[in-house]
Design a protein around this nucleic acid. Structure first.
Lengths: 168, 168
DNA sequence: TTTTCCATGTAACTCGTTACATGATTTC
DNA sequence: GAAATCATGTAACGAGTTACATGGAAAA
């Protein structure tokens, strides 16, 4: 659903072909969303069949034909619905990354601390990366801020856990 | 992988049958992990075939036979590996919940604010719930704290977005 | 007596991914 | 001449879910 919203939203701005969409997402939005090529092609196909988008073929030289998609009015309506739904709603996030913490006590404290310090380094690295990302236009910046906020939260929680372990 | 770690970790503590595992997870850990019954049964089957756990049948009266699983030494090793890997590692979280924010500008400001206020209420509710959860034993408490931390971060980011919209 | 709980499962499906295939074109 | 890029796709798989099925026991 979210990837459909993503593709629709981008196609609302301007018509694009599959490769181009994937390229754009992969190089401009990699910090907060991702989509693989086969998924993109598959969704475009499906949404075309549903009448949300239409395609026109574009031939340039001897290259493979581009299938350039643009939104239909049905697609526009769908986009509006999806967008509102997405913004007004929130469903609990799971953090499968952290399942191991349930069993922290199974490990000798010293080893646990060592492992967690490694994790801390990883998260710090990601945080740095997110923070040094070039500023994005408009609402995309919100998404980057979100990543940063969440990574900071993750980090501060982790530091808390580590220091509680060190107290013992 | 994470659910395997979860099941293994619980079976390390004490032998259990599928229904019981699901029950336990569903009623004691619902804030941070979840697993559906068919998934649990499927994984138990698979892990038994891999020799990570063994089962013995337990018959009580005329009820359906329980398949009580307990860990093997191979399972113990696997658990140790998975646990260390999970703790020392971190991979970027995606937040598909928030995809819509990329297109915030497509909406009239007033409406956007209204939608986001609704979302805010939802998150506040979840936060309350997580905070009033009865304290858990040992490391499980870390997981609850994590949920709380993440919800707070989500909320503070959202409030920030809302107030930036209101300034305009 | 009807609903809920106990305890197991299967089948079909969804969403997404990896790995592979094709073939021209530009770049090194 | 080899490698990366452009542009499309298919096939097989993976993890997990929903919906359904069974059948006895306890509770309402």
């Amino acid at each position: 659903m979210e990837r459909e919203l993503l593709l629709l939203g981008l196609l609302k701005r301007e018509q694009m072909h599959g490769y181009q969409l994937h390229e754009f997402i992969d190089s401009n939005m990699q910090t907060c969303v991702d989509i693989k090529k086969p998924t993109a092609y598959y969704l475009l196909d499906k949404m075309e069949q549903q009448g949300l988008i239409t395609r026109k073929e574009e031939k340039e030289g001897n290259r493979p034909t581009r299938r350039v998609y643009s939104m239909t009015t049905t697609g526009e309506e769908r986009f509006q619905t999806l967008l509102r739904q997405n913004l007004a709603t929130y469903s609990q996030n799971r953090y499968p990354n952290n399942t191991g913490f349930i069993f922290l006590e199974e490990l000798p404290e010293q080893e646990a601390i060592t492992l967690l310090l490694n994790r801390q380094t990883l998260i710090s690295g990601m945080l740095d990366e997110a923070q040094t990302a070039p500023p994005h236009s408009g609402a995309m910046q919100y998404m980057i801020d979100h990543q940063v906020t969440m990574l900071q939260a993750e980090l501060s929680w982790l530091e808390n856990v580590i220091s509680r372990l060190q107290e013992q």
